[in-house]
């Protein structure tokens, strides 16, 4: 039925949530590219968008390497008055889980002979970062980048 398309279309292409399935290394850069596009659409600065994209690639490549895949959710955070306040990343997998979270968040620790700064690095790149993991069941990571970082949040 013809009608005003703006009634049904989301307000802006960058303003709708995305769920990206991660199955292997090739999906990592795709996810990072999408995260960067969304951040730029939402009005983040170039440096902030780069941070979000890099954090995304760290989280998704962890899923690809350690958990055999998972899903990445990208969600714009929008205030009741319509202003964009931030961007939320959620990485969920059904992998083996992380046995020692504190150790995994330590710089230079890696079980796969990698640099070992992916998780701690991603948490530094984002403003908020929380991780929940149950050995044998999987890992859920939620991270938020605020559009205007409050000075107290910055490291």
């Amino acid at each position: 039925m013809p009608g005003d398309p703006s009634l049904h279309a989301p307000p802006h292409p960058g303003h709708c949530s995305l769920a990206i399935p991660i199955t292997g290394e090739r999906d990592v850069m795709h996810a990072a590219r999408k995260a960067r596009q969304m951040a730029e659409h939402l009005g983040f600065s170039r440096a902030q968008a780069y941070h979000v994209a890099t954090a995304t690639s760290e989280l998704t490549s962890n899923m690809a390497v350690h958990a055999g895949g998972g899903t990445l959710h990208l969600r714009p955070l929008i205030d009741t008055d319509g202003t964009v306040t931030g961007l939320e990343l959620k990485a969920e997998d059904q992998g083996p889980g992380i046995a020692d979270l504190e150790l995994a968040m330590t710089d230079g620790y890696s079980t796969a002979r990698r640099l070992g700064c992916g998780l701690p690095g991603a948490s530094r790149l984002m403003d908020e970062f929380s991780i929940r993991s149950t050995p044998g069941q999987g890992t859920r990571i939620k991270a938020i980048k605020w559009r205007h970082s409050r000075p107290a949040d910055r490291s």
Binding site: A47, Y50, T54
Partner: peptide
């Protein structure tokens, strides 16, 4: 390496 890239690399600790 772009300015954003440099900033990101230091935050990552690389």
């Amino acid at each position: 390496i772009s300015p954003e890239g440099a900033q990101t690399l230091t935050k990552l600790g690389i």
